[in-house]
Amino acid sequence: MSVQEAPVVIEMWTDLGCPWCYVGKHRLQAAIDRRTDAGRFVVRLRSFELNPDAPREPETIESAFIRSHGGDASVVLDAERRIQALARGEGLAFSLDRLNANTFDFHRVLHHADEQGLGTEFFSAVQDQLFAGAINPFDPVELVQVAESVGLDGERVRRVLASDEYAEETHADRREGLALGLTGVPFVVFDRQVAAPGAQSVEVYGQILDQIVGQHAQRVVAHG
């Protein structure tokens, strides 16, 4: 990799069950994959729990919403169906039967995976299978199985789950995102230069990548 192709770090603050995070992550990856220099971009997934008070016991998405905000299931499911149609139009599985629960332990394991260089692989494997309705990621046994499938040591992941390891790192991610101006997720920060709140289009993500690469090149020229 030449100096002009130095790594560009892209950080995405995200939560596991957040539908726009799921759509946005796939769009961001699509924008990266379109580029001939795709290998220079390093995506790091940062923790942001949308509902830190969510119960640990899984519940349906409509039950979770009604418990937190009231209303009736038909309104929730109507909104979900609209996101489902959009996601399916982009080739993504999107189950309305997926489960919802507290994601703190998941984020702790994410930090462990990130330390092993497998953060994005772990997060993506769990989220893709959650939205496909294929797993209950709030079951430690199933979560460990997915972790092992991406190359993590299952016994080590079990120890993380049984402890409070990476709790502070998970809280710190939240604080840092808020300090940077996060008001919702997904929240994508490119090279600590440009922030893109929400799920942007592939085209917008692509334009930001062009801009960031251009700024990198200018800095190389300026600093010789």
Partner: peptide, 18 residues
């Protein structure tokens, strides 16, 4: 942070409120 972040203008397709 290298400097103040520049925020992308325009609406996203969707966002989940923090």
């Amino acid at each position: 942070p290298v400097g103040p972040l520049v925020f992308v203008a325009g609406d996203a397709d969707g966002i989940c409120d923090s």
